[in-house]
Design a protein around this nucleic acid. Structure first.
Length: 314
RNA sequence: CGCGGGGUAGAGCAGUGGUAGCUCAUCAGGCCCAUAACCUGGGGGUCGGUGGUUCAAAUCCACCCUCCGCAA
């Protein structure tokens, strides 16, 4: 059975954060018949505690698409039976989707994943790729199967990382790439025009979720790895070190010199740059934020910090 | 009523009742082969807002606005 045009195809879309709006917008723009959007429940936002709808929900409401927000989709998916859809498209939904629900889509279920599979399966592929200093990553359109991120890959789009400043920038690029792919790839997929390629199990790696401990910048890495580590966590959630008992987040760092004249973790006195000694060189902390303060340049921080030397970060 | 830290010169900060300061930036001049270095001098602030206490408030009290960290 062939579909003549996107409007003949009934799509159930699953997604939650900002990055997941790109494929949804692309599908809507192309004229797909999006019969439902599934997203995480509204959550209290920040200090105010106001309930806030997910970015994907906002788009769905604006487009007049019915929204479903099961607290636990593992148990709560009966509503989907009456919906009647041909295909499931997913990106960053945030819950594991039960096989029974996947099977409800006669033409299959696909997911946009933020890595070049089989590398970086899991929760934080973009951050891990940057932290590991990869030269490229990308987005993969893959079949959803019960094993996480293990399905056949239909299409990939490569994103070079050389000029990507940080995770936030990659996040935007990844979203845009997924959106571009969604414009044509879903239509080809439902018409059976693309062939799934099984993942090479011997090349599988995992990108574990970023934990609270991960956010604490380790000082035993070399300068290059440290800079990449910071890059992978910037601007959200931000890698931090302790200055006294306060957290000092570092959003951007650069190599300053290869000197090894001080102790690892020591701040080196300098008028313009906030310099940190590492085991194989000195890095400049260019954009930082002290707990309770705004983000600022390292030099600006030095103007008012009144540090007493020697001073250490840990 | 989740916990907590801020809002003082363009930037970053100090200053808890008595004529508003520091570092950087900026402007002028000087030194120097030269300089982002150094020296001298200058400009720039109704101290988030409103009300109150006081002879006197950036500083104490009340309320409000606003920014941020943690936790969710």
């Amino acid at each position: 059975m062939k579909f003549e045009k996107p409007s003949d195809i009934k799509v159930l879309y699953l997604g939650t954060p900002k990055i997941a709006i790109y494929p949804l917008l692309a599908l809507l723009e192309e004229g797909f018949n999006v019969v439902g959007v599934v997203t995480q429940a509204d959550k209290p936002n920040g200090r105010s505690g106001e309930l806030t709808a997910s970015p994907v929900k906002k788009i769905a409401l604006k487009a007049g698409v019915p929204v479903f927000q099961p607290a636990k989709i593992r148990k709560d998916y009966e509503w989907a039976k009456e919906l009647g859809f041909d295909v499931i498209v997913c990106m960053a939904y945030g819950q594991i989707i039960p096989d029974e629900l996947l099977k409800m889509a006669p033409l299959g279920a696909v997911n946009f994943h933020g890595s070049l599979l089989p590398k970086y399966r899991g929760a934080a592929p973009m951050q891990r790729a940057l932290m590991n200093g990869e030269s490229e990553t990308g987005v993969s359109l893959m079949e959803m199967v019960s094993k996480m991120d293990a399905g056949d890959v239909y299409e990939t789009s490569v994103i070079p990382l050389e000029n990507v400043a940080n995770y936030s920038e990659l996040y935007e690029k990844m979203g845009a790439a997924a959106g571009e792919m969604a414009k044509h790839a879903i239509f080809k997929y439902v018409n059976g025009e693309v062939k799934g390629v099984p993942q090479d199990e011997s090349k599988v790696t995992f990108a574990e979720k970023i934990s609270v401990e991960d956010e604490h910048l380790p000082l035993n890495l070399n300068a290059k790895k440290t800079i990449n580590y910071i890059r992978g966590l910037s601007y959200e959630p931000g890698a931090y070190l302790y200055l006294g008992d306060k957290k000092l987040k570092v959003f951007k760092a650069s190599l300053f010199s290869e000197e090894k004249a001080h102790e690892v973790g020591e701040i080196i006195q300098n008028k313009k740059h906030l310099l940190l000694q590492l085991k194989d060189g000195v890095i400049s902390l260019d954009e930082i934020q002290l707990e309770g303060k705004k983000m600022m340049a390292g030099g600006a921080f030095l103007n008012g910090a009144r540090l007493t030397f020697p001073c250490y970060l840990k």
